[in-house]
Nucleic acid binder design. Structure first.
Lengths: 211, 211
DNA sequence: AGCAGAACATACTCGCGGGTATGTCGTCAA
DNA sequence: TTGACGACATACCCGCGAGTATGTTCTGCT
């Protein structure tokens, strides 16, 4: 008996599963969900399907695990930033945006899949288990977005930002940042720090009152 | 003999082709390229495959036509805005962003496909014709982006914007705007005008000097 | 030593979907 | 009026890819 989702068990015995997961994330990132075949993932692993289906029951299960892990990673990163209530809201938003942009450029594989996760058309005739996993992912996305919305609301109250609907204001912020994975490709010379800084400044200024 | 690309001929005889094109755009928008079957498109048309393959030689050809038409539409819309040299750069950027946001929310089908056009993995082992069409699309995307970059450069020279690399600055702008089609869904009550105005203000302010 | 189970590989099945080959119906020009 | 051609529908082929069934090897435990 093998668990169908890797998120329950940890420990050294699950190292094999993580290898599969990372390989899958890489291919999903490049070709998307439907265009990726299980054989493609196996090829990256230098093995065959058997290895993959030993750990996962279906292609959709792998995808859902990639999505979930990526969102868990983002949530763990934004929480400490959001909790720094001593920092003014604009500085907090700057830090959050900078973090998000950096993750987009570094944790390329997993995070990119999470963004491109629009391809959840596996939702339709999926099983109950998968629907729940997908709903959990959507809930996490909402929670993550809410962190940004809360910071925006704080900034508006403090008079630092324009008076906008916080939830709506979070859209162009995350849009500008998520879009990074549509054009950014890792290169020797590409200065991740500078890009992250510039983009963070952009979204913070975007909310400031029009001079 | 039937032409393989609809962009050469016009006139009433091509009405049938346009029907196919619009239906395809709708389905491509919802499910993406690979997840869309030709039978799906036919079902939307209330007909069968035969009708589609009467006008197009392959699924990729349809997709490329959708992409091309969407980009032609955007280019036609931004040119008159970019040419208004009497307007200050920030007002021009505001108008351009507002236009783009509005198109994202109204011309949903075609434009959304164009944005999501990342799925050009049909490029790989595609024929020479398709590679040229795809390259043409990429060139148009670049040209479109360049309009924004030029406006940004003008604004920087005028002291209205921060001193940023124009080409890089165009990325978060178009990211914030393109991202709209990831979350916006047409609704009776959704106020397109307000959203477009708010997003345009956001991207313009994003470039202003930090007060 | 020997056995149980994990960790894979091999070899299949089988349906979906892109593309083709061919038929049928209407229309319009000569 | 007929015949040529456009505008489809029908019926088919065929490969790819998800999933399965069944090995085989290795490893740890007793």
């Amino acid at each position: 008996m093998v668990m169908q989702s890797g998120l329950g068990r940890r420990g050294p015995a699950e190292a094999g599963r993580m290898e599969v997961l990372n390989a899958a994330a890489t291919v999903f990132m490049e070709r998307g969900f439907t265009a990726t075949s299980v054989d493609d993932i196996a090829e990256v692993l230098g093995s065959t399907k058997g290895r993959i289906y030993h750990y996962y029951r279906s292609k959709a299960d792998i995808f859902l695990d990639v999505l979930t892990l990526a969102m868990l990673d983002l949530l763990e990163r934004i929480r400490p930033i959001a909790e720094q209530r001593d920092l003014p809201p604009d500085a907090r938003l700057h830090a959050a945006a900078r973090m998000h942009a950096t993750v987009m450029m570094t944790q390329s594989a997993r995070s990119r899949v999470a963004v491109q996760g629009t391809e959840m058309h596996l939702m339709q005739e999926a099983g109950a288990k998968q629907r729940r996993a997908l709903q959990a992912f959507v809930d996490m996305r909402d929670e993550y977005e809410q962190y940004f919305a809360d910071i925006v609301a704080d900034g508006t109250r403090a008079g630092l930002f324009r008076d906008v609907a916080p939830r709506l204001a979070a859209k162009p912020i995350l849009g500008a940042l998520n879009w990074i994975n549509m054009w950014y490709r890792p290169r020797p010379g590409s200065d991740i720090e500078n890009i992250a800084e510039e983009f963070a400044t952009f979204v913070v200024n975007g909310l400031r009152p029009t001079g």
